[in-house]
Design a protein around this nucleic acid. Structure first.
Lengths: 177, 177
DNA sequence: GCTCTTTCATAACGGTCGCTAGTAAATCCG
DNA sequence: CGGATTTACTAGCGACCGTTATGAAAGAGC
């Protein structure tokens, strides 16, 4: 997972993986089938249980708190000492050849799942009157996702944790009170 | 440029390029040297003249107008009918092998150049009193950059032009009046 | 103790990668 | 018109890609 995170899906070779895992190629193929399934496994491990995100969003007092927490967590995740910079979901399958279209599709689906959790949580606050009725949940969710994925680029370009946290907080100023 | 835009730097092969350009490999090598220099040329063509951006920023009545215009232009660029989805600068060298580190560096430098134009323009408005003195130009610039690069992911995931423009406008709500 | 299954590595497969030597046609210049 | 230069091709280079057939070593069950 760390190697894919650092170097991307297609641009990571099997020998990169064998070197990092300390096993030889046949062991990888016996355990995971092929490179694609190994990556999808790494992607699942990176994204975590979707239910956990939903639970965290449900637990938060407001949609605003939930989204702010998610973006700040991302800021910290992208600047960890023991992990590569940026976001695996944002960078590992950003582009690629036709062969890897299904892998990009899987990453896109993971992002859509996150978006859908955000939208639902915002809608809940709108329904309850915590957010004004003219609020557009889809736009706020898209904005949150764009900031999150965009911070990955900043992190890869060398922005430090404080810079990312400042961006995270500034981005929340877009929200209605 | 379009092929790199669509498929990324390392994940675009020379034969992809020959097919798109209608010439054979030796012609490419005679004209551009190697794949890396061809990509850097495409990158320069994509990014355009840095002076143009600076001029546009200088021409705008306020920093806020300048940044809003940049982000909305990006939203339109990422959803063009005749070009690939998203941003070449954001996606073509998001990750990659050690061999391509200098290409990623070139993309990062292009982003830093844009950031620096934004920062300067904001600082100008702060100096003149159009923006409050406690404004942090670096944070606003980072946010603008993150939204811009993040919109590339949304565009690749299928978001349409209106959705991106809505994100662009929503992101500007972070700015002080 | 002796099979039997599992675990892992060596070695190699066909294919594609980025790149280039060598050559034939086209174009330019005197 | 004729020699020099450019332009573009065919063919093929070594290296590495993802993947797998084969076989040795190690633990499990009788």
């Amino acid at each position: 997972m760390l190697v894919f995170w650092e170097s991307g899906y297609e641009t990571t070779s099997i020998s990169d993986l064998t070197a990092a895992m300390g096993v030889t190629a046949p062991s990888i193929y016996a355990a995971f089938g092929d490179k694609k399934r190994l990556f999808l496994e790494a992607l699942r491990r990176y994204a975590g249980d979707p239910g956990d995100l939903e639970a965290a969003f449900s637990r938060a007092p407001t949609a605003r708190d939930a989204v702010a927490g998610m973006i700040e967590n991302a800021a910290r995740l992208y600047t960890g000492d023991t992990t590569p910079r940026g976001c695996l979901l944002a960078s590992a399958a950003a582009t690629g050849s036709k062969d890897a279209a299904d892998v990009r599709h899987a990453a896109a689906q993971a992002r859509r799942a996150i978006r859908s959790v955000i939208v639902s949580r915002i809608q809940r606050d709108v329904d309850v009157g915590l957010l004004p009725p003219e609020t557009a949940p889809g736009v706020l969710a898209d904005l949150a996702l764009a900031v999150t994925q965009g911070m990955s680029v900043l992190a890869r370009d060398g922005a430090d944790r404080d810079a990312l946290l400042a961006v995270a907080r500034a981005s929340m100023a877009s929200w209605p009170e």
